[in-house]
């Protein structure tokens, strides 16, 4: 039953975007404080079966973007504007109840820390069946074999026994597999993975990435991969969006981005990765931190940390300019990468 549900969507890749985020803006407003634009006019498309990466360091707005798409940001204290068009419906205009019916069914999410994302007092199997009961209207008895099947599918050995385990009885990698099984239980069309490998060992990271890749290819699920790890991007993503200070600063297909990064920030991220073939060379980290940002209003937020700022960088906001399949927001792009 599961297998057919998955296989049905294997060949639905098309050019019409499944998810189309337009000018998404999330503003946190605390009483008596300056409003803070966590996400500032982000637009991107995800086509069925495509894997899109959102890359950036902590605080660049990638997680807030995903929570906004999921409708999981708290109501109070923030403003969300723009549109999030999912298969013809603007998710931002849906009511809480309508959104709740979609979450877990059409769009699912995998979180960073697999231990704290599972309910510690409920067996893993029940947490899988809970979703099936909720969205498929199955009763628990009927959902159990399907849950075992899902656990098997994500590579958990002996699922019939494991289904009764509590999260603390599983290893980190298995927990993340279980979370993926839960997220994929209702065969969502879009999966958002928010740094799914950050809390795991390197060996397990590779396994989880391979698993995600395989599942996405099998089922035709579109995937938004949120990460700060360019290695993950290189292995998985079709298209990469680099975020900085709540805006997209560079976008392009995976290979061109890696081969010829145009934005100094992307270039800096790539320069921060140790390379085997450049032994002896010093790493070139990006100086400073997100706290040094300028406001985007009349400048490029990245200018204070940029390796090659020019006068105009602190005077006008750069626009996102599209050339072919790449887009760039920079006054003084990198000519000679790295």
């Amino acid at each position: 039953m599961t297998t057919t549900a998955y296989a049905a969507r294997a060949d639905t890749r098309s050019d019409a975007p499944l998810l189309s985020v337009r000018d998404l803006q999330v503003t946190f407003q605390r009483r008596g404080e300056e409003p803070f634009h966590a996400v500032d006019g982000v637009s991107f498309d995800v086509r069925p079966g495509q894997t899109v990466g959102l890359v950036g360091e902590s605080g660049c707005g990638k997680s807030v973007t995903s929570l906004a798409i999921m409708g999981l940001l708290p109501r109070r204290g923030n403003r969300i504007s723009g549109t999030v068009d999912f298969d013809g419906t603007d998710l931002l205009s849906l009511s809480d109840g309508q959104m709740r019916d979609r979450r877990g069914k059409d769009i699912a999410m995998v979180f960073q820390d697999p231990l704290s994302s599972l309910n510690p007092v409920v067996p893993v199997g029940i947490q899988v069946t809970e979703v099936l009961e909720r969205h498929r209207g199955m009763n628990r008895k009927a959902a159990m074999p399907m849950a075992a099947d899902l656990l098997k599918r994500v590579g958990i050995p002996d699922p019939d026994r494991r289904i009764k385990d509590y999260p603390h009885q599983m290893s980190g990698g298995m927990r993340q597999r279980a979370l993926i099984a839960i997220a994929l239980a209702c065969a969502p069309r879009l999966l958002i993975a928010d740094e799914p490998t950050t809390a795991l060992d390197v060996t397990i990271q590779a396994q989880i990435l391979a698993l995600l890749k395989e599942l996405v290819e099998d089922t035709g699920t579109a995937l938004i991969m949120i990460t700060h790890d360019l290695g993950v991007v290189a292995g998985l993503c079709d298209e990469v969006n680099v975020l900085y200070g709540g805006k997209i600063v560079e976008r392009g297909p995976r290979h061109p981005i890696f081969r010829t990064p145009r934005h100094p920030y992307t270039n800096g991220l790539l320069g921060s990765i140790p390379r085997l073939d450049a032994a002896g060379e010093r790493l070139t980290p990006i100086p400073g931190s997100v706290a040094d940002n300028l406001p985007w209003d009349h400048a490029c937020a990245f200018a204070p940390r940029c390796s090659q700022p020019i006068a105009v960088c602190t005077q006008t906001t750069p626009e996102l300019e599209t050339t072919g399949d790449r887009a760039l927001r920079c006054h003084n792009p990198v000519e000679d990468p790295r």
Binding site: I156, D165, G172, G173
Partner: peptide, 30 residues
Amino acid sequence: TAPAPVPVGAGGPAEDLTVHESGTIEEKPG
């Protein structure tokens, strides 16, 4: 939800999505 001691070495191989061998994973329950 404080982390229970996590036993090392688990999680099935990713290449093989349907792992059948039961009991091959050594893991003491936390």
